[in-house]
C-alpha cells in the first residue's frame, strides 16, 4: 500500500489502482454523512477534485492522486457513507483507476513513511 500527503491510500490490483482515505483521515474527519463519487469512465488529471466527502463537521475533497481513467466506483458508499469510518482502508475504498505508468507509485510514501508523516 502507498500513501499520499493528502491522506489517500493506493493499492495496486493487477493493472488498476484502488484508492481510499486513511484511517487517520477518517478519524480526523469524524462521522462521514455524504459522499459524491466520480463517474466510471471519467478521465482525470492529478489533483482534480473528484470525490466530495462531508462529515458532521466539514466538507472535504479527495483529489485524483495521478492522471488516469476511473474504471469503477464504490457505489454502496453513497447509501452508507458511515462505512468510511468503519473500514476506511478496506471495504470503504472510493474508486479504482487505470493509470499509464504504475512506476509513478514508487515515489509515494510507504506505510512507515506515512506514519512518520502524520506524526
Amino acid at each position: 500500500m502507498k500513501f499520499t500527503e493528502e491522506h489517500e491510500w493506493l493499492r495496486v490490483e493487477g493493472d488498476e489502482v484502488v484508492v481510499g482515505i486513511t484511517a487517520h483521515a477518517a478519524e480526523q474527519l469524524g462521522d462521514v454523512v455524504f459522499i459524491e463519487l466520480p463517474d466510471e469512465g471519467q478521465t482525470v488529471s492529478k489533483d482534480d477534485e473528484i470525490v466530495v466527502i462531508e462529515s458532521v463537521k466539514a466538507a472535504s475533497d479527495i483529489l485524483a492522486p495521478l492522471d488516469g481513467v476511473i474504471t469503477e466506483v464504490n457505489e454502496p458508499l453513497v447509501e452508507e457513507p458511515g462505512k468510511v469510518n468503519e473500514d476506511p482502508e478496506g471495504d470503504a475504498w472510493f474508486f479504482k483507476m487505470k493509470i499509464e505508468d504504475l512506476s509513478a507509485l514508487d515515489d509515494m510514501m510507504d506505510e512507515a513513511a506515512y506514519k512518520k508523516f502524520i506524526g
Binding site: 493528502e6 491522506h7 489517500e8 482515505i21 483521515a25 480526523q28 474527519l29 469524524g30 477534485e49 470525490v51 466527502i53 462529515s55 463537521k57 466539514a58 466538507a59 472535504s60 475533497d61 479527495i62 483529489l63
Partner: peptide
Amino acid sequence: MRGLEYAGCRLP
C-alpha cells in the same frame, strides 16, 4: 484529500 486541516475546527 483537501480540507482535512479544517476538520477539527469547522464548527460555526
